[in-house]
């Protein structure tokens, strides 16, 4: 059996001044090339979980290993493996797409021909070849999202964290991004995907982890979960059944 790319055990995070932990004992194991969807209502602890998994935030308790390396005590040693596509646009709007991508590539030590090839690859994957010379602030919403994805993958990370990467864009752009992600995953990139769009998870993810109030509620493939709850026709029905219909914010 291959070594897991990510192995988190009993992760706990409690924010200062809060009595209840934001994340309370999450366990997660990701095999290489796996694409999982992290679902949960607002305030369920998705962002805190993804922040800890991506080493942005240090857990109060629990262990986290990325590619076999302890990511809690030495996050610097594993960050090269990680790619991040945050919900907010993580690009410089006044720079062109090429300038942005070159900047991120250089930060990861890419140079010369390697940098050029990486740039060509990521704009090709995201379908932005024709727009490398344009400033980001002239892009449409969908193009900005794809550019955000391109910047997250330029150094070819082993694990890609995607925090609601399709929020606020049209169906065509969403379709394009999901196609891009499927392509990347097919080529071996492991992904953790959070979203509120259930149909995206149904189409894309091999496994779903639903969390609420900082704890895992259920985990498994969409088909197996629906089979275990025959009263639910869709993932959204199941989600509402498991997390309730009351408003969270």
């Amino acid at each position: 059996m291959t070594r897991p790319v990510l192995e988190a055990t009993a992760l706990v995070k409690c924010y200062h001044g809060q009595q209840r932990p934001a994340v309370d004992g999450i366990d997660l194991v990701l095999q290489p090339g796996e694409l999982i969807g992290l679902l949960g209502p607002n305030g369920a602890g998705k962002t805190t979980t993804i922040s800890m998994l991506s080493t942005l935030m240090r857990p109060d308790r629990g262990t986290l290993c990325l590619d076999g390396v302890d990511a809690v005590s030495a996050p610097q040693n594993v960050r090269r493996l990680i790619g991040m596509v945050p919900q907010d646009l993580a690009l410089y709007p006044s720079l062109t797409l090429a300038e942005n991508l070159r900047f991120w590539g250089r930060l990861y030590g890419l140079k010369g021909r390697t940098l050029d090839q990486a740039l060509e690859w990521c704009v090709d994957v995201t379908g932005l070849e024709a727009f490398t010379g344009r400033c980001i602030d002239t892009f449409s919403g969908g193009m900005k999202r794809r550019a955000n994805l391109a910047a997250g993958i330029i150094h070819r990370p082993r694990i890609l964290f995607l925090d609601e990467p399709t929020v606020g864009i049209d169906a065509q752009s969403r379709h394009q991004i999901l196609t891009n992600l499927r392509h990347l995953n097919k080529n071996g990139m492991t992904m953790v995907y959070t979203t509120h769009y259930m149909e995206e998870v149904s189409q894309l993810c091999q496994r779903v982890v639903v969390i609420d109030e900082g704890r895992e509620v259920v985990s498994g493939s969409v088909d197996s979960l629906l089979a275990a709850h025959p009263e639910c026709d869709h993932l959204e029905d199941l989600f509402l059944k498991l997390t309730g219909k009351h408003l969270r914010d």
């Binding site: 991506s54 080493t55 942005l56 610097q76 040693n77 960050r79 090269r80 990680i82 790619g83 991040m84 945050p86 919900q87 907010d88 646009l89 993580a90 690009l91 410089y92 709007p93 991120w104 930060l107 990861y108 910047a151 997250g152």
Partner: peptide, 17 residues
């Protein structure tokens, strides 16, 4: 504010550079 900092944080040894 734009989220660039999140990505910068994930670049190893980036703070000093």
């Amino acid at each position: 504010a734009q989220g660039v900092f999140i990505r910068l944080q994930l670049v190893p040894g980036c703070a000093l550079s």
